[in-house]
Design a protein around this nucleic acid. Sequence first.
DNA 1: TCTATTCCGGACCCA
DNA 2: GTGGGTCCGGAA
Length: 689
Amino acid sequence: MLSYQATKILSYYQDLDLSKWGYGKKNLSVKAKKLKDDEKNVATPLKRKQDVPTCHLEKKRLPLMNYTSHERRYNWTSRRPEFSENYPCDIRSLGNEEKRELLANIEQAVAFVTTMIFQDGSSQLNSEQALTSSVKGIVILVKNQTDRLCSPSYSSSDRIRNAADERDKLIYLKTECSSLWEQEEQAHKKFAWRVLFQMMRRKVPVICFNAKDFLRTVLQIYGNEISWKQVADSVVLDPRIAAWLINPSDTVPSFECLTEKYFEKSFSMETENTDTGTLRNASVSSLRLLLLADTDAYSYLALQVQGLWKLFCTLELPLIKILAGMKPAQNKTLHLFHTALRLKELEQEAHQIAGERFLLTSSSQLREVIFILLLLTKLSLSKLQDLHPLPKIMLEYRQGFISSTWNQTGTVTGRISSKHPNIQGISKHPVRIVKKQYIKGKEEEIVTISPRALFVSKKGYTFLAADFSHIELRILADLSSEPELLKLFQEPETTDIFTTLASQWKGIPSEEVKQADREQAKRVVYSVVYGAGKERLAECLGITPLQASHFIESFMQKYKKVNEFTKKTIEQCRTKGYVVSIMGRKRPLANINAQDYKLRTQAERQAVNFVVQGSAADLCKMAMVEIFTSVVTSPTLTARLIAQIHDELLFEVEDSQIQEFSETLVKFESHDYFKLTSIRNILHYNLSI
DNA sequence: TCTATTCCGGACCCA
DNA sequence: GTGGGTCCGGAA
């Protein structure tokens, strides 16, 4: 009934062929054999950071980027030669002829390796991610076709002298605008835009560590010139995502850590020049970018060996661009606040009162702000100074938009996480706020407010929420092949699924199922699946543990295959050391064979949960990719993703396109799970597919 | 001994 | 029972 074929995903990555870029097939298979042995390491008890296949010296000889003797560069014990000519060339210093040459170069490049440079001189490759520092520029290594490495005349000494091929170009694009109004600056920006535009238009790899941040920045800076649809055209590769797939529990591997893991020795950057004012302090040399390219290449080797390649190409890589192009949501209250702030006197007051510093990123503090705004509408503005002190940081939120950060590698199960604020954690239900007023003689005021309703779409646009219905239960039904459970989903969804389930389970007509029965059924299902004990279930349901265990037993009796499924999953995990989702996502569970009962049973629950939760994440990502590609390839559609709440996708759709967009959704392969539930703001409808 | 920062567990929200 | 983020207060 349900098919999990992922092969039909329309994606630019579909035809991703390593050999085209010098990942020789011959080499691959040889290396693959060696890696196979390492694969076993996954299941062995981990020293925490070492659950990535360890690499040995010979693996340094990577087939990528055509340097036969480049391993010499990884001889860390020897002194690194100076590569002064390999520091970036600022494109502003180029003459017209050189610019033309560069563009021609880009047209023929086989790959690009790139990183952002921050204000403080650090790059994306530095371990301390400079979150405070803003972006200063972009360094790009333009790799050109060089087949001559096959030629024996190209000696290693040549290679050492020119770490990068001489036809490779290392360029620097300044992005910070000091004096935007100057004509010269404008011309530079335009040329930088052209370089980036052409780079992304080419269907060759753009290798970047933390590619999402890179793309987002590009969109931010050149938002007027480069649309998110054009960014979607690029073929970005991110070794960090690869590393996360191989070892999902290591959620923040730095570039240094990765090179250490893959190439054994750490690559010290002590020789980096710290001068200021010159481009040398860009802390990026072609050497470093080549190392990034090699890290990238090595990751893919490991991905292929572990069977993660397809998952990587069909889901994770396209997702980078989707997350990069996600639109910040406009918040009604912040917008109002902005409007209010525009009033001159109020702005002054705001500055005066501002003393207490707090972030808007927390929901409770957000509520405070909301409350202030509610008061604003009721009270005269002159009384504002008597109210809560206003945060300075508020000024940053003037536009009234909330843009949270979406993290692709933040979970072990393959789900996406969000922070600042955590949009996925915003309360669904109305919140009660009791606020003391600092105005003499006024009583306390209670306000209820629905935090989600505060997000509003642009004028002329509508929020469209599309979500999976009971996705985890469906996956469970499918994976366990439990006939009774499958029957639930074969019938058209006329009544509530848990009501039907309760009637089926208890053998009573669905009309007689009470709310309490339904609740029980729901709880029991999830408890049994995820291995909750009778005590926990009893606590949830407000019954005695004895009654709870009766429930569990009768459920197991009725749906035998579910129990078989969990047992099978655990068994498989014991022998292999890891569990696999429907799309082949892996989670190593070292404790599955532990002596300690507590640790072992926890690993068992995690194993079962991963298969279900991870598979659900896979399907949701598939939907995201499919919807995204169909919007991108459509000449008319402009729908943009606002948020992803695990099994729900929130889009902002042009009013005139609602029909067309809805029809697009219907086509998806995952449609067995997918349905539109609601469209806020204007429309409300329920569409069962 | 006091103050300031950092860390960690627990509580809450979400799926 | 699993997977997240954020807040808070107490310990270091």
